[in-house]
Design a binder for these strands. Structure first.
Lengths: 227, 227
DNA sequence: TTCAAATATCACATTTCTATCACATTTTTT
DNA sequence: AAAAAATGTGATAGAAATGTGATATTTGAA
């Protein structure tokens, strides 16, 4: 089942939301402030975050931005007044939503469900150009035609395609692909995987349609976050 | 690159962790006991501390608390058993994390990276005049049109543009661009990079729009810090 | 165990970048 | 104004990074 991180400094509100979410079958973890939230997020990797924007020490918007630096997890923001919307809009409000106080726990649960549905469609299919990636089924199609990928190739493709535009170093890629801590792999192995993936996608390194090489830095899935 | 202080009285463990961290591109300094750690911390100002809690003379928790008196540097604690967690919780575990022994060096490296990511969030997009710099994507656009930069050029442009108005000496620039320490580079190499960057940005040294030369001092990105 | 698929490495070709030089030009100093 | 010092810049050798087919090694299923 989906795991949800609830961040609110008021214990009563936190518990209330937690209770209702649990009743709906979610696994819930809690954080009382921003630092704790960031720590728990990294450790537990929840599927969604319910985030109060009024927090002590570090405010909620800042937390949201920091998380956005390395994750696209959907965030449901709890905001005190409508005026805050301007600041919320400063965020890339793609995968997010917000609820204005005072709210009923039921409303929060409803929004959570809606957000989850939106963010994790039965399979969170990644579509780029003419290829589609089906995470749950570990399948990739190009123009509707299936292409067979191995586990490692698939993970690598997932990583890059989920963050178009972002440059990943070989080391970052290794960290993401190899779950085992002690596994030490030669740098260039990544290149070999890239080669295989490109071959399967029919991509040409000289003029890539999907995966670009960034000399001296790593690889990057083609695409622009700033458009 | 990030500097990490490793504190452990056992030389073998210290060296093992150091080795793995260095392999991941970190600069590492070592301390064998608490006194040394505190001294080195003040002197070297590391970005993160890997701290064994079992230390001779002064124990690790005490060290951590002392450091917390005047710094929020993230600390990764190495703890012997789970029971110690109670004492760790006595600390404000905000920006910190811990690993329970026995641990693999890889796990330590992974935690270090995670902590650093949390503690030093990615730089924001830099916008100056008609150019935008995207650190994560290693991309530069001018009027929305992408311009290809090499790693060195990119780093140099990042450095200058992040501090408009500030003059950087060639030496300062070299320190920022070259991670490897024994790399000694000829002064004038910087000039050559400046030349390349200017060319790509369409900048004219005689009447620069972006990078000014400061005779006898270095280079400066045009602009004012106070606005 | 055996075998095939997946994974990891290697070696060599190719591409791209780096660092430097030499000479021109500009700025400062004398 | 001449000399000295600093900067601008095109060219380039060599270093470094990447592309890739072939090969070794591991894994997992039968």
């Amino acid at each position: 089942m989906k795991k949800i991180l609830v961040v609110d400094d008021e214990e009563n509100i936190r518990n209330l939301i937690t209770l209702y979410l649990q009743k709906s079958g979610f696994e819930v973890i809690q954080a009382a402030d921003g630092e704790e939230a960031l720590a728990l997020f990294e450790k537990e990797k929840p599927h969604l975050i319910v985030l109060d924007l009024m927090l002590p020490y570090i405010d909620g918007i800042t937390i949201a931005k920091r998380i956005r630096n390395y994750s696209n997890v959907p965030i449901l923001m709890l905001t005190a007044r409508a005026e805050e919307n301007d600041r919320i809009k400063g965020l890339e409000l793609g995968a997010d939503d917000y609820v204005v106080k005072p709210f009923s726990p039921r409303e929060v649960v409803a929004r959570v469900k809606s957000l989850l549905r939106r963010s994790y469609p039965d399979e969170q299919i990644i579509k780029v150009k003419d290829i589609k990636i089906y995470p749950k089924e570990m399948r990739v199609t190009k123009n509707g035609k299936e292409i067979a990928f191995t586990v490692k190739e698939f993970k690598l493709l997932m990583l890059l395609s989920a963050h178009p535009g972002k440059v990943f170093s070989r080391e970052q890629i290794m960290d993401a692909i190899y779950t085992d801590y002690d596994e030490v792999v030669f740098d260039r192995t990544i290149d070999a995987y890239i080669k295989n993936i490109r071959k399967k996608l029919g991509d040409n390194p000289k003029n890539p349609e999907y995966i670009e090489s960034v000399y001296g830095a790593g690889y990057r899935f083609k695409g622009d976050k700033n458009k």
